[in-house]
Simulated scan of single mutants.
Amino acid sequence: MGQGVSRRQLVHGLAAGVPLAAVLSSPALAQAVAATLTTVTGTTPSGRTVQASLAVPAKLPAPAVVLIHEFWGLNDQIRAVAAEAAREGMLALAIDLYGGAVASEREAAKKLMEAVDPAVATETVAFWIQWLKARKDVTGKVATLGWCFGGGWSLNASIAEPVDATVIYYGRVDRPAEQLARLKGPVLGHFASRDAWINAEMVGGFEKAMATAGKPLTVYWYDADHAFANPTGARYDADDAKLAWQRTLAFLKATLGA
């Protein structure tokens, strides 16, 4: 246990005032905070059983946010972000698109990501959005939020089952205007200037397509690389990650009324 971090802080994590970055960068803290979430299950229209982790805010009813994991899978870090979102007044649901699998090595994560069936994942994200909309403790306002692999799926989810707000962290956004026209709420995108994959060309095309579709989009660029918001990675940029999260919370509170 680190200096200055009591057992109560370790157990209650963010609720006890531990900064989000400190929780995400510490496996012990992230695990402790993740353990405070509740596992929920559901059955999709095709009969598949799906699973997610739920964090409930102190005050209900509340707006809801669906969190979609990076290509590593639904790990403790993503669950810890859900706990932080709940602390900020949102009912937060961290969903699983890997069927329970989580990777710690890059090659294993890549295989998991490549094995995802888009039709199956689309059914999953749509199911959970509908699940949240049907809850009596949700105000009716729902957003999606994702990073990397999950950033692309945050956009895909909002196209498949329109929501009130969409947040994308360096996710794939090369979708045509006719698909983007299905979006209901505004979109916020965080992108990195040194990202060789989700680059200026892709994001520029996204901006043009969103304009053609007549949909509101706010884009922020950071002098950073892909995955700059993940404290466990080599590309982590503390200042940019903090700023991006502040912007994300402000955007969600403004659009959802949290």
Rank of each mutant, 00 (worst) to 15 (best):
Ala196Ile: 14
Asn199Ile: 14
Ser158Gln: 13
Leu145Trp: 09
Arg172Ser: 09
Leu217Lys: 00
Val219Ile: 14
Gly150His: 11
Gly152Leu: 00
Gly185Asp: 01
Trp221Val: 09
Thr139Cys: 02
Leu145Asn: 01
Trp147Lys: 03
Gly205Asn: 13
Lys208Val: 13
Ala209Cys: 05
Glu178Lys: 00
Val219Tyr: 08
Asn156Arg: 15
Val187Cys: 04
Glu161Tyr: 03
Ser193Asp: 14
Pro162Lys: 02
Ala165Tyr: 04
Cys148Gly: 11
Trp197Leu: 13
Ala143His: 02
Leu183Phe: 12
Arg194Met: 15
Leu183Thr: 07
Glu201Tyr: 14
Ala177Ser: 14
Asn156His: 15
Ala211Leu: 03
Ser154Trp: 10
Ile168Cys: 12
Val219Lys: 12
Ile198Val: 15
Met210Leu: 04
Val167Phe: 10
Glu201Asp: 15
Ile159Lys: 05
Glu161Asp: 11
Val173Gln: 14
Gly151Leu: 13
Val167Arg: 03
Phe191Thr: 06
Gly140Ala: 00
Ile168Met: 08
Ala160Thr: 10
Pro216Arg: 07
Pro186Cys: 04
Ala143Phe: 10
Gly214Val: 06
Leu180His: 02
Leu155Thr: 11
Trp147Ala: 00
Phe206Lys: 05
His190Ser: 10
Ala165Gln: 07
Val203Ile: 02
Ala157Glu: 09
Ala213Gly: 04
Ala192Gly: 08
Gly150Ala: 13
Asn199Asp: 15
Arg194Tyr: 15
Gly140Asp: 04
Asn156Trp: 14
Leu183Met: 03
Ile168Pro: 04
Ala209Tyr: 12
Leu145Gln: 01
Asp195Val: 11
Ala160Gln: 13
Ser158Pro: 14
Gly204Pro: 03
Phe149Cys: 14
